Structure formats: structure tokens, C-alpha cells
Amino acid sequence: MYNLIYGTVPFLAVIIGAVIAVWRPPGEKLVSGMQHLAAGVIFAAVSVEILPSIMRDANPVATLIGGLFGTAMMLGVKGLDNRLRGPIAFLCLIGFDIFLDGAVLGLGFSTTSRAGYLLTIALTIEVLFLGLNVTNELSETWKSKAAIVGITTLVGALLPLGMLAAAPVLFLPAAVITGFLSFGLIALLYLVTEELLTEAHEKPDSPASTAMFFVGFLFLLLLDEIEKFS
């Protein structure tokens, strides 16, 4: 239950992103910078916590099975994204994405508290952008700002539900946990490479927005080092 409280932080970020977007939609350069920042933070969380946990357990079979399952699912999501159109399909895909983020966050807490805290920071930045993205998409078909924020809030609520779904993993054997972590690793790498950075490069780019990737990476890396030092 204590860890679920941390899950409300990115959930609130979704709502904040929605409110900001309906009040004053951000420019494309700002959105691109946020996407680079989120990608850098998530990549750092993967590098300093998820990947070392998988390698420390040293279970090649579990890593392979989880990784292959994660790859197949992410490719399936990409295929659906290319085929489905319309606001309902968009909301379903974003909802699955947010639910998966919550599950990965829950998996992070199943390893160490520090991993969960760092993933909370990383995913909070990421879903803040998702809140902006969902609101901008809905504004093309919905005129009511309250309805847009309400729908976005309902979608964001899937994140703590994802955490709850992942909670039983904590009580499974170490090999199974490693498989789930491998799945989460692939999901986060897909999020960075195929969603955040790809969409960021579709917008007007600049050295400043590109630099935000490294700002995010160094920020989380230093945060992890400071926590270990203290």
C-alpha cells in the first residue's frame, strides 16, 4: 500500500498535464524538449536499476523468455498503432501504455525501493507528457474542457491499477521476477526509442531540445549516486 502511494504521483502528473494543455497548450519545441527529457530519465532508470537487477540474478532463460514476450507485445502494440485510427482507438492504446507503465513501476518496487523511487520520477515526467498528448488529441473532437480533463483522468487511473496488477510478482520465485523485469526492460526501451524520441523528432528540433535527453539522463544518474552516498 505504501508503494501504491508513489503510484499516485504520476497519476496526478497526468491530470496536471491535462489541465495545462486545456488551459494553455504548450508549443512544439517545448513538447519536444519534454519528450527528450523524459526519454533521458527513463533510459537512466533502466541503466542504473532494471538492467543491473537482471544481470545480478544471472538467469539467461528467464531473461530470454521475458525479453521475447516483451518484444512480441511491443511489436503488437506498434502494429495496432499503425492500423487503428480515431479517438477511441487512440485512448485504448494510450490506456494500455499507461497501464503498462504502472505495471513496470510495480515491478521496480519488487526489486528495491530505490528502483521504485527512480522509476516514479522517470514515469512521472513521461506521463506528464502523455497527459498533454491525450488532451491535445481529444480537443480535436471534444469541445468541453471539463470532459477532456475527466476522460484523461480516467485514462491516467490505469497507472495505479497497473501497479496493483504487478504487486503479486513480489511473492513469486526469483527467476519469475527476473522474467518480468526483462519484459519491463523491453517495454521501457520501446517507450524511449519508438515513442518518445520518434515523436520528438517529428517536431521542430534544436540543440537545446536534444540536450534535454542528456540533462534527464544525468539528473537521474546523479540522483542515484547522491542517494547511495547519503
Rank of each mutant, 00 (worst) to 15 (best):
N82W: 13
V127F: 09
R83W: 15
A103K: 00
L105H: 02
I121C: 11
L84M: 15
A103Q: 01
T111R: 09
T124Y: 09
L105R: 00
L91A: 14
C92G: 05
L119C: 08
G116D: 07
I98S: 02
L118F: 14
V127I: 15
I125V: 15
L93F: 10
T111Q: 10
C92I: 15
L84Y: 14
L107Y: 14
A89S: 15
T120H: 08
L118P: 02
S110V: 13
L100P: 00
C92D: 00
A115M: 14
A89R: 09
L128T: 02
F90T: 13
L128Q: 01
T112Q: 12
V104G: 01
A122H: 05
G86A: 04
D101Y: 08
A89H: 11
L123I: 15
L84G: 12
G95A: 02
Y117K: 01
T112M: 06
F96H: 00
N82T: 13
I94W: 13
G102I: 02
L105D: 05
T112N: 06
R83K: 15
R85L: 07
L128G: 03
A122I: 03
V127G: 05
G116S: 09
L118N: 02
L84R: 10
T111K: 04
G102P: 02
P87R: 07
V104R: 01
A122E: 01
T124D: 03
L84W: 15
V127D: 06
A122S: 08
L91F: 08
F96K: 00
F90E: 06
I125Y: 06
G102M: 04
